[in-house]
């Protein structure tokens, strides 16, 4: 969880006009998100998005995913991994340890991402990380018909879950997962709601099997310039 990282960046850069706006994709709501928020004590806005509406609006399929928005409310970097990499895939699933090399790679990417933010805050539109419109558009993914159908299925599932029909909800979560298999948000949210008392339900065997099925494909598509 990166909430403490964004808090440190806010303390460092808040006076220079920077603000993190954190969104929790948590259909279980406050109950699920609150312990993490209480521990991080964020002074920046930290909201709970039970329906994953921000994921839909900004076409986010994973966490942590970020979009950079400038002072005029314009997108200067579209949805991309916020400093996370696939190094976690080298985790030893029995001992929960990772090779030192992977630890270093993870840390280096996180720091590079934070440095890119610092550069943007210092240089604004002149920062090489604040992309020109054509480049934002080139990198931006927009959903196709199947993917908006996935959204509608997820929304129906989330609503049924909220109304107290968890089994019916899973049917629509399954449809959303089939229609948009690249969305880890759909997959892991559904796993978590299926087994809500198990805090590792979205990072257990079902999760790792899905990660293994990726084969050579990336869990976090690499960011070209960071």
């Amino acid at each position: 969880m990166d909430l403490p990282v964004w808090q440190a960046m806010y303390e460092e850069l808040g006076a220079k006009g920077f603000v993190p706006f954190a969104v929790a994709f948590d259909s279980a709501g406050k109950v699920a998100a609150e312990p993490w928020i209480a521990a991080a004590k964020p002074a920046y806005p930290c909201v709970i998005d039970m329906r994953h509406i921000v994921a839909e609006l900004y076409d986010m399929v994973n966490v942590p995913t970020a979009v950079w928005i400038d002072e005029r409310g314009r997108i200067v970097r579209p949805s991309e991994s916020a400093g996370a990499t696939d190094a976690f895939r080298t985790l030893d699933r029995k001992t929960f340890t990772m090779p030192e090399e992977s630890m270093k790679e993870m840390q280096a990417k996180r720091l590079a991402y934070q440095d890119a933010i610092r550069d943007w805050v210092a240089n604004g539109a002149a920062s090489r990380f604040a992309l020109a419109e054509a480049e934002v558009l080139r990198r931006m993914h927009t959903p196709d018909d199947n993917q908006v159908r996935a959204s509608a299925n997820f929304r129906l599932g989330e609503y049924l879950h909220e109304c107290g029909f968890p089994e019916a909800a899973q049917k629509y979560f399954d449809a959303a997962r089939r229609l948009r298999p690249e969305s880890w948000n759909y997959k892991r949210q559904a796993m978590s709601l299926k087994d809500p008392t198990n805090p590792l339900s979205a990072s257990g065997p079902e999760f790792w099997n899905a990660v293994d099925e990726l084969g050579d494909k990336k869990y976090y598509p690499p960011v070209e310039d960071i």
Partner: peptide, 28 residues
């Protein structure tokens, strides 16, 4: 517009004039 843990609503547009890192996370 979405609520924080205290139920207070926050809109993205309240932060116009700032550089915003809109960033997702989840408890799961």
């Amino acid at each position: 517009s979405l609520p924080d843990v205290a139920g207070r609503m926050h809109s993205l547009s309240e932060y116009r004039g700032k550089k915003v890192l809109l960033v997702s996370w989840a408890s799961w």
